[in-house]
């Protein structure tokens, strides 16, 4: 029997006030085990205060072939950035 154990993605909050960040993946048969395994594998050196696990198959990813249409249109919207606006140097706190 081919028995492939599901893959999970692990996200760890290193301390309160910071976001959970992806730190890697692992195999586990169920969510409980994924959480335990994440604790044992990825927080051996006090790396975390909170863990999220999600089965990899539930992640929907954008397609790199569509990167151009998805992300490039944002490149020319310079007016969304503060440096677009010219102000005299005397103006402070802005």
């Amino acid at each position: 029997m081919k028995n492939e154990i599901p893959l999970w993605e692990v996200f760890i909050r290193s301390k309160n006030g910071l976001e959970h960040r992806h730190c890697g993946s692992l195999h586990a048969e169920d969510a409980e085990m994924a959480l335990n395994n994440a604790r044992d594998v990825y927080t051996r050196r006090s790396e975390g205060v909170s863990i999220w696990v999600v089965e990899s198959k539930h992640i929907t990813a954008s397609n790199p072939d569509q990167s151009a249409e998805l992300f490039e249109p944002a490149n020319d919207k310079v007016y969304r950035h503060p440096t677009f606006y010219d102000l005299p140097d005397e103006v402070k706190h802005m």
Binding site: I5, L26, H27, M33, N37, D40, V41, R44
Partner: peptide
């Protein structure tokens, strides 16, 4: 039996 439980048992 697999890497994950191996690591856990060593912990």
């Amino acid at each position: 039996p697999n890497l994950e439980p191996d690591i856990a048992i060593t912990n």
